[in-house]
Nucleic acid binder design. Sequence first.
DNA 1: CTCCGTTTTTGTATTAATTACAATTTTGTA
DNA 2: TACAAAATTGTAATTAATACAAAAACGGAG
Lengths: 159, 159
Amino acid sequence: MKTAENTEKEAAALLKDKKVRPSMIRVKVLKYLLDNRNHPTADRLFSALENEIPTLSRTSIYNTLKTFLDEGIVSEITIEDGNSRYDAFTGKHGHFICEKCGSVCDFDVKCATCAPESLKGYKINQEHVYLRGLCPNCIKSGGDGNEKNFRKKRCKKSS
Amino acid sequence: MKTAENTEKEAAALLKDKKVRPSMIRVKVLKYLLDNRNHPTADRLFSALENEIPTLSRTSIYNTLKTFLDEGIVSEITIEDGNSRYDAFTGKHGHFICEKCGSVCDFDVKCATCAPESLKGYKINQEHVYLRGLCPNCIKSGGDGNEKNFRKKRCKKSS
DNA sequence: CTCCGTTTTTGTATTAATTACAATTTTGTA
DNA sequence: TACAAAATTGTAATTAATACAAAAACGGAG
């Protein structure tokens, strides 16, 4: 069974592997991403960890994420404008966002690659598949998902 | 042959079709999007049109784009964080962004849909496929595209 | 054509995410 | 233990986008 200490060790090992010094913040951020596959924003990560690390600053979260991005430890999900989310899972998968509640979930993409032959002169580094719509919960609770200005306002907290 | 007046009329007709009053700004914004398939940001649209419409304000660009989004006249491309781009072409296609020069181009996606059966309780409204990498021009001009912090800084102008 | 209510456009102020940067603290090692 | 390098922090600045209210343009009824 997976324990908290296990993911902590796993995170540290993963960092050493990538030649990134496993400082406390880095380990805790990566551990959070491994334990909580909820595609958090930088702000959500900060909120989740500020209790554990009382001196934590937002800049450190941004620094950490930048390091992780540079080393390919996490990928950035830009499914929603102006609110980057981060994902530590490397297997190929797509992301769905509910336009009502803002939750993001993974799904398996059917095709191996979406890149066609017409891009043969290009170097492809990343591939992202994003779906937008309504999740089952929000369908149940009403609204057909075609309301105007649905979830257009910025909101800080979303899962 | 396609003339400037033609796309202007085309844009106006498209708007009337969607029950959106074809004001000058709306027609010119839509015309720009139809004439220039370069996936502009709001700011780029503003820069492109401020000469033609001297009283233009950025807010009007945002208002116009919001109306277009609500009516399904354009779609929003969030391939790059913190810089939404807009596209008036409705046929299914993916978007590639060059991590060096920031240019965005279209490509045909190979599979009809990327949504798998596992999402059968969901309502899918939009599907986006984004690729990131290096375009042929930037490959020629050097750099392997794996530089750290490559095009991480915000920059206003990009095509 | 003119009046009047509605829609569109505009300008200013605000919000919120992210970055810049310099100072401080921590870390690894000689 | 001491020192250089790396990590962390706090503050200020930047930027895209939004809120909102005032001004302007529009369109139909009389």
